[in-house]
């Protein structure tokens, strides 16, 4: 399966939130939808789920306009919350039935997931008797119980302890392996780097960067060197204009061009007492800050 959002635009009153945003997500792979707070991620997700229509653009599933009557979507919203005063089983079955499951199937699917997430003992408890992390696991079941083709997880790891986070990681990896389209939205870049094959960074209503995550990292211009040296201050003075302090006592030196890498490295090694020189490889965090940092 292949999900394509093409040229989506959406305004609320005067405010234009999306200005022709496009991305493609494929089954069996996780897609990372990134952007700062208020960039339009939730709006994109709601349009994708058909909560409200886009002002312009199309959503295609396998090349055809998406038919909400036939495709099933599971959604874990960033704003968590279910019915605090109701029995856990009752409300999970209710949500599964709303998604089109028969009562009997819904009960057995919910029970399976409660066992899988080690929550079976809370089956007949009220939701508000659970801790926040456990409530989040319950909410995750509303997204998974009906076995959706498309799974949208908005900040799925926030608030989980490391054991629960690992359990969720396993679940997500399983779902990806089972051929689901998984769309991730998170500010925890380490999780995006771990799961997502491709990403899109949303800024100013358009995708400022998108594609295969490894390619994106690899194709970045290799024009910055990371230098560790006891003569840090001297190098900074000598390379004034192109050098700046980096993290943990390192220096970052921007090259005039990537081809000059060898020449500058030799010069540094010959003139200064240098402990380490390497080409700077940006983390997703660096890429995110670079592309999403300034409001376009």
């Amino acid at each position: 399966m292949k999900l394509e959002l093409q040229n989506i635009s959406k305004s609320f009153g005067e405010k234009q939130v999306l200005k022709g945003f496009s991305f493609t997500a494929e089954s069996g792979k996780a897609f990372g939808l990134l952007g700062r707070n208020g960039a339009g991620k939730t709006t994109t997700i709601r349009i994708l789920m058909g909560v409200f229509p886009a002002d312009g653009g199309t959503i295609l599933l396998d090349g055809k306009p998406i038919d909400y009557g036939r495709v099933s979507i599971g959604y874990l919203p960033e704003e968590r919350g279910l019915y605090p005063k109701k029995k856990i089983l009752d409300q999970l079955v209710y949500f599964a039935e709303l998604k089109g499951m028969k009562h009997r199937d819904a009960v057995s699917a919910v029970d399976d997931w409660l066992r899988r997430l080690e929550m079976a003992e809370y089956r007949n408890k009220r939701l508000d008797t659970l801790s926040k992390g456990n409530q989040q696991k319950i909410q995750l079941i509303t997204a998974l119980a009906h076995d959706p083709q498309i799974l949208i997880l908005d900040e799925p790891f926030s608030g989980l302890d490391p054991v629960n986070a690992m359990m969720l990681e396993d679940v997500v990896k399983e779902e990806i392996a089972r051929g689901k389209i998984v769309i991730f939205s998170s500010h925890q870049m380490n999780y995006i780097e771990e799961f997502c094959d491709s990403i899109a960074i949303l800024n100013g209503g358009v995708a400022v960067l998108q594609g295969d995550l490894r390619e994106l990292k690899r194709s970045r211009a290799k024009d910055v060197l990371v230098v560790r040296s006891p003569q840090r201050e001297r190098i900074l003075a000598d390379f004034a204009g192109s050098a700046k302090p980096g993290e943990s006592d390192t220096l970052l030196i921007r090259l005039p061009a990537p081809e000059k890498k060898q020449a500058v490295m030799s010069r540094l090694a010959a003139r200064y007492d240098v402990d380490e020189i390497k080409v700077f490889e940006p983390s997703l965090n660096d890429i995110f800050v670079e592309y999403a940092g300034e409001q376009a």
């Binding site: 919203p77 919350g81 279910l82 605090p84 909410q139």
Partner: peptide, 15 residues
Amino acid sequence: TEKSSRAMEVLITSA
């Protein structure tokens, strides 16, 4: 109540 408990986020995408 559904809105303030944010159950609406799931409901509106389900029904």
